[in-house]
């Protein structure tokens, strides 16, 4: 399952951050997830509930997810528009010369820990 693979990577990153900073316990993890990333937030938190139990470091850590809106920029008319609604074609001028500015993120923003 895709979300489980992602949780495995988050956990590895947290373990190395904990080792660098001498952390024993993580209380929460805040993620930034883009609207057009391949991640389904509900699945992700479900996987987290199950996976965190295996590691004392994150056993009680709450997962917080902040959704980031997807925005596309049009090179032809230099305007931006919401990606989810209009896709790759610019609704202002009809051009295909567009690229995603934000919305495919999948970042660990911060943790609370001691």
């Amino acid at each position: 399952m895709h979300e489980l693979g992602i949780i495995v990577h988050i956990t590895k990153t947290l373990q190395s951050v904990a080792a660098e900073n001498n952390l024993r316990e993580i209380a929460s993890v805040t993620l930034e997830v883009g609207e057009v990333s391949s991640i389904v937030p509900d699945y992700l938190t479900d996987c987290w509930q199950y996976y965190r139990k295996k590691f004392p470091l994150i056993e009680h850590a709450e997962m917080k997810i902040e959704m980031m809106p997807a925005v596309t920029y049009c090179e032809s008319c230099e305007k931006t528009y919401p990606t989810v609604e209009y896709g790759r074609q610019c609704p202002h001028c009809g051009s295909w010369e567009t690229y995603l500015v934000t919305g495919d993120e999948c970042n660990i923003r911060e943790i609370e820990a001691q």
């Binding site: 990153t13 951050v17 999948c106 970042n107 911060e110 943790i111 609370e112 820990a113």
Partner: peptide
């Protein structure tokens, strides 16, 4: 006491 630590890492960084 818990402290906030900024991580600012892509989830795929460790795999990359």
């Amino acid at each position: 006491m818990y402290k906030v630590y900024e991580i600012k890492k892509r989830i795929f960084d460790d795999n990359d």
